[in-house]
């Protein structure tokens, strides 16, 4: 029987996946909203200034991550950034667009991504089985982000610039189960 008083419940791409091994933890990251920002009118510097005024953070260079009080952002492509804010608001793109006025094309992306964190000592050993990218501290220090392949999956790898060193893997939502499978098999092969 249809209950027209009930709203819709949100679901996570991986149903809050959380698995642990002795030196490794794999968990789905939940919460927050993500929007893409792209400068319009060729106005990268205008957008940079506006964003800094509003959020106190500089738009980072290609491959870099910057954290600020209410979230973080990274450069996802030339003149394109993904900003993650610690709020729940499915209208964020509209509100952020208003804040940034006409300086940016803003698009909601929260639901487009499954986000998985890999944490622990064995993280490098697991990641080296999943992707060709050089993730050593020298090549990919904290505060780095890059788009690459994990197995056959197109992903972002985001290594935050905060003290807690975790690797976030962002993968298109429809591939979430394939992502989890890839990571968990690699984790089992290394840590199991």
């Amino acid at each position: 029987m249809f209950d027209n008083t009930v709203s819709l419940a949100g679901s996570l791409p991986l149903n809050a996946l959380h698995k642990t091994w002795p030196s490794l933890e794999v968990k789905e990251l939940v919460g927050g909203e993500i929007c893409s920002l792209t400068a319009l009118h060729g106005g990268v510097s205008a957008l940079r200034t506006k964003f800094q005024n509003e959020y106190g953070a500089l738009l980072p260079a290609q491959g870099k991550v910057v954290s600020f009080d209410t979230g973080f952002l990274f450069c996802s492509a030339p003149e394109q950034w993904f900003v993650h804010l610690n709020i729940e608001n499915a209208f964020l793109d509209i509100e952020l667009g208003a804040v940034l006025e006409t300086r940016a094309a803003v698009t909601l992306q929260t639901d487009a991504w499954a986000r998985v964190a890999i944490i622990g000592e064995d993280t490098p050993q697991v990641l080296e089985r999943l992707m060709a990218l050089n993730l050593s501290d020298q090549a990919f220090p904290m505060g780095s982000a890059v788009r690459t392949l994990l197995g056959h999956l197109n992903v972002f790898i985001v290594r935050g610039d905060k003290a807690s060193d975790i690797y976030e893997i962002w993968c298109a939502r429809s591939f979430a189960n394939s992502l989890a499978h890839e990571i968990c098999v690699a984790a089992e092969n290394v840590c199991g």
Binding site: T107, Q109, A112
Partner: peptide, 8 residues
């Protein structure tokens, strides 16, 4: 500017 929203 373009961005895919297939997944969104």
């Amino acid at each position: 500017k373009l961005i895919s929203v297939t997944e969104q």
